[in-house]
Simulated assay, not measured.
Amino acid sequence: MTDANQRDAGDGLAYPCGTPPERGEAREIAPGVRWMRLPLPSDSLTHINVWAIEEHDGHTLIDTGLGNEDTIETWRTLLAGPLAKGITRVIVTHLHPDHVGMAGWLTRRSGRRLWMTRTEYLQCRVLAGDTGHAPPDEAIAFYRRAGWDDATLESYRNRFGTFGRLLSRLPASYRRIRDGERIAIGAHEWEVIIGAGHTPEHACLYCASLKLFVSGDQVLPRISSNVSVLPGEPDADPLAEWIASLDALSRRVPDDVLVLPAHNQPFTGLHARLARLAASQQHALDRLHATLREQPRRAVDTFGALFSRAITSEDASTYGLATGESLAHLNYLVNRGKATVKEDDDGIAWYRAA
């Protein structure tokens, strides 16, 4: 049970919305704005928050949950109950399956459109197209370069192409949303604010009149967003994009908003959270740089400098996320002249402090 005024000591955040809604409940947390939770099959993240904004002829939905039968059953309960008025449109913040997974099912059922940024929609279509295929040689070389051994690579081969199985078929067209666009939803105007780093073109929504900010995965209160380099763009610098996004959000969104994140609970104290995330990131980069001073390291050798718990290849999903995040930090240092990288004769990359 969460106290309605719970505050985490020392972090400047408060959680004024009380206990989360039960499955099938749509809790009103601001005029016409309802908070719902959908289940996730994970021990670390058991739910995703999704939002409904009431209009005269239905509800705008923001994010949709993972594409599976458990989520479908929850949506059926919501659409037969608190959301029986119907759906006017489906807005998705970004391409990850827990956000876009049910977008196709909901848009086909309602006859309404999917609203999404262009990069997120198109990249989602590309990743879904990998379903059932073997991983490309470039992906195997990418993870071998990072230091994966043969057993871990074989596990990756066996798991590759599962992205599309986590979502219902996307609609073949969508309505593009852009940074700075203002969307009338019900009685209020919402501004699209684009972030990057976690994904390439992540959409957040800010309503000045209601003092609400839908942050998706761009700002979370209790965990940090994964920022990874992926095989399709091995030279990417997503950490620089994410740090720039934190700074932009602190300038574009005032501190007096109620933040509606994709995970954990709605909170106040946006600017304190942004500052804490930025400081934590700098500390991680400093630790990594110090580690690279000791001796050359592969990406998989840097986990101890970046993560508070042990990362092993037995947990394949976490190992992959940790590899991508380590590469994001290493690319950041290399691109700023603070580290160098050299491949050995086996194609494995070794990093050292410049």
Rank of each mutant, 00 (worst) to 15 (best):
L210S: 14
L249H: 14
S250I: 10
R222T: 05
S250W: 07
I243S: 09
D255Q: 04
I183G: 04
W190Y: 15
F213Q: 01
Q218A: 12
A196Q: 12
D255T: 02
A203E: 03
A244D: 13
T268K: 11
A196K: 09
H202Q: 10
S225M: 06
L258M: 11
V259M: 01
L260M: 03
P266R: 00
V229S: 00
E191D: 05
D179P: 05
G197C: 11
L210Y: 15
A184L: 08
D247H: 01
N226E: 15
H263D: 11
E181A: 08
Q218F: 05
T199W: 06
L230N: 05
G180V: 06
P200N: 09
A272Y: 10
R222I: 06
E189A: 10
Q265S: 06
A196T: 08
V192C: 11
I185S: 05
D247T: 08
E233Q: 03
V259L: 00
W190H: 14
A208T: 11
E201S: 14
P254V: 09
N264D: 12
F213M: 04
A187V: 01
G180F: 05
P234I: 00
V253L: 12
S250T: 14
L205E: 03
S225H: 07
L249E: 13
R252M: 15
P254N: 08
E189R: 07
G269D: 01
L239G: 01
T268P: 00
H271L: 11
H198D: 08
V227P: 09
I223N: 12
W190R: 06
P221E: 03
